[in-house]
Design a protein around this nucleic acid. Structure first.
Lengths: 165, 165
DNA sequence: CCTTAACTTCACAAATTTCTGAAAGAAGCG
DNA sequence: CGCTTCTTTCAGAAATTTGTGAAGTTAAGG
């Protein structure tokens, strides 16, 4: 008989990893449940799980999953797919998609930029405080540009490392 | 008569910037009070403030300042200085020091690395889940190296831009 | 030494966040 | 169409985080 795709894994070891990694994401500022859902998806073999599967592994209600997934989809760390011929939804982490999201904080960086620019104006570009804020602004603008290039290089590096012919 | 160093600034405009920027730091995951203290320091003309000054600008108790500053010092976003001949302490943001801290998350990245490595072992390097986690690990290792280089280039760029002869 | 000015710690109150159960909403399937 | 299966929403309970006042600690200055 064909085994289900997650067979042969020690569920306890998996869970231990999921919780450990999630805890670090939380420390870095992510919502707890979102972090746990994300870690569970990352560790899953197929890279997809249904709401019910997540609920069981994490021992939480469907409502909690729903909220976490909504957030994760918003920040493009997971995508949602409808299983054809079923009202069951599957949530997926694309291995190449998710850390793109980490650096594609374009919208966020742009909002920071706006705030900092207004700060420079309020403080006066010629004052010491204004100059300090202006330098911070310049740093974030620099960062925004460099992160794009960095991700391009990473994709190349990854292809060489993982897709070696 | 010589004006004190912060004169001529519209305190309300300054406060508005401080709170706006702090709010964005909070959204990015920083503790609220730490964010407010940091923003206030960044916007100050001298780049330093005493506990009392911070307490007054932010309308909070000394205890709150104490906790926030402890955290900020721990992550190297501000440094503490003793005023000679006084038990008053000054907190300072070095304009070049603080965003170094942003990228010098070495310790953090290393801890993430450890967790991910254990994850690869638990899941099995040959399983799809294990491979996905391994790729994530590779990404963070790549990131760690690149961030160092990026910061070097930034320092050069900044010197050209801000210290033009 | 004693006083006093500052900073820190701690127990607790307040505010916020997080999760749940229940009910309502969609969408396949007969 | 109505039944059934899943997902979402929402009000509120529970847990966590955050900030305060008061007491404790440290060190300068007499």
């Amino acid at each position: 008989m064909m085994e289900p795709s997650e067979a042969g894994r020690d569920p306890e070891a998996v869970s231990k990893f999921v919780e450990a990694f999630a805890a670090q994401l939380v420390e870095a500022g992510m919502q707890r449940m979102a972090a746990r859902v994300f870690a569970a998806l990352l560790a899953s073999d197929s890279g997809t799980m249904s709401s019910a599967e997540l609920g069981e592994q994490l021992q939480v209600s469907p409502a909690a999953i729903s909220g976490a997934v909504r957030y994760l989809a918003q920040v493009h760390m997971v995508s949602r797919e409808r299983e054809p011929g079923s009202r069951r939804e599957r949530y997926r982490v694309h291995s190449d998609q998710w850390y793109e999201a980490l650096t594609n904080r374009d919208a966020i960086l742009r909002r920071w930029g706006m705030t900092l620019r207004e700060g420079v104006d309020s403080l006066g570009a010629a004052t010491p405080g204004g100059r300090r804020v202006a330098e911070t602004l310049a740093f974030f603008e620099y960062l925004e540009g460099e992160l794009g290039l960095l991700m391009e290089r990473w994709r190349e590096h990854r292809d060489r490392t993982f897709r070696t012919p």
